[in-house]
């Protein structure tokens, strides 16, 4: 199994089939295309999206429906084409977490990472509406 050098996890062994490809990178990280999702049982449902190209780059993620059970995904035709899916098919949608000024974590519901569960091709689908925030306060977790 290939091994990725990572700052957070040390030398990380991973299945090649588990690698997630972002053909278009992510905003702010346009040249980062390959990641793997690292899940520790203790941290569920959180998971780290670890770059396979930059050892120090990892994002903490949470499934969008854990943050907002009624979340409705809006994804452009172009982004659907990037991941090779249609609107109806089930997708894995993760929100990236970031620290707010008060130290608590916020979730980016404006631009979830959307993963094709069959091919592991992914895109960060940035919405063009203002329905959800890029800094959704997690005190407001809606179940």
């Amino acid at each position: 199994m290939p091994i990725a050098i990572t700052k957070r996890f040390g030398d990380l062994e991973y299945e090649e089939t588990a690698a997630i490809q972002f053909p278009t990178g992510l905003p702010g990280f346009d040249n980062r295309h390959r990641f793997v999702l690292v899940e520790e049982p203790r941290l569920a449902p959180l998971a780290f999206l670890q770059s396979l190209e930059s050892p120090e780059l990892s994002f903490l993620t949470v499934p969008v429906h854990v943050v907002d059970a009624s979340y409705e995904l809006a994804i452009s035709e172009q982004d659907l084409e990037t991941i090779g899916m249609d609107l109806a098919s089930e997708k894995l949608c993760l929100a990236l977490l970031a620290p707010a000024e008060n130290g608590r974590l916020t979730a980016n519901l404006l631009a979830p990472v959307v993963i094709n569960p069959m091919t592991r091709v992914a895109v960060q689908a940035v919405r063009s509406d203002t329905r959800y925030s890029h800094q959704h306060a997690l005190e407001d977790i809606c179940s």
Binding site: P27, G28, L43, P99, L105, V126, H134, Q135
Partner: peptide, 28 residues
């Protein structure tokens, strides 16, 4: 919105304190 998300991703790529993670797990 791409610019905003790019900036937000930079923040998300930064250090997240273990305490913030523990607080979130407690909440969940």
């Amino acid at each position: 919105e791409i610019h905003v998300v790019g900036r937000q991703n930079q923040a998300a790529a930064g250090t997240i304190s273990p305490l913030a993670v523990e607080n979130l797990l407690d909440q969940l």
